[in-house]
Amino acid sequence: MRDILSYFERDMLRWVRGRLAVISALIMPAAWLIFVGLALPTTFTDNYIDFITPGILVLTMLGASLQGGSLLIFDKILGFLNKFLALPSSRESILYGKILFITTRGLLQSTVILLLALLLGASFLSPFSVVLTYGILALFGILLSAFSTTVALYLSDHDSYAAFNAMVSMPLFFTSSALMPYAVMPSWLAALAYWNPVSYAIDAIRALQYGVLAWGRIGALVFLAIIVVGISIVQFRKVTL
């Protein structure tokens, strides 16, 4: 546990001291909230900002997690990973450290987006639903950061990671239930969106807005997270160069 916190502390210090990076990650989700959330003429709801907020919170987490994979890429290119792998501390603690940092950073960024959404007129049912929202976002962050960090372990340079990121992030977002309900989607998109893990998180948060716990969606997220983290641990344990 101490090892995980040490790795976490290192990434956190580096992030906080890189001032530009702290702000830049927030621009995209904030732009979605303002320029789409407030401006898009929708017919299926009177309060689109309420509808889109869960989607943008998950988008924030998605972006933060996929971006997080590049941390390991840089550790690898710059020689840090070699040094860490030659340490007696367990190798999966490197993975856990990354998951902890990337998820924490994502939650901090989500908080800013949530405050902005509230400012723009979004409403949440109760403090309890906000806590559960954080829980779902954290779960989603763990899933995606384990995924991106393990992918990074097998990619050799930053260009190929950027290509992977571009290939995955936008398609995942657009084929989710972030922007519109299943009812107004064309049927092919609705089918795709229903099975998209991004939708699991969005639907679960959206259900909270009505005071409902969507156990099916949360369960699916937990199940996926266990599988992905499990695979990641195995990969980190056996990694050689």
Binding site: S6, Y7, R10, R14, R17, G79, K83
Partner: peptide, 21 residues
């Protein structure tokens, strides 16, 4: 490769390894 964290102080760089060991 000269892998030291430039955004950390010298002491923080060493502290990381002291903790990990």
């Amino acid at each position: 490769d000269m892998a030291v964290d430039i955004k950390l102080t010298g002491r923080e760089n060493v502290t990381l390894f002291a903790k990990l060991y």
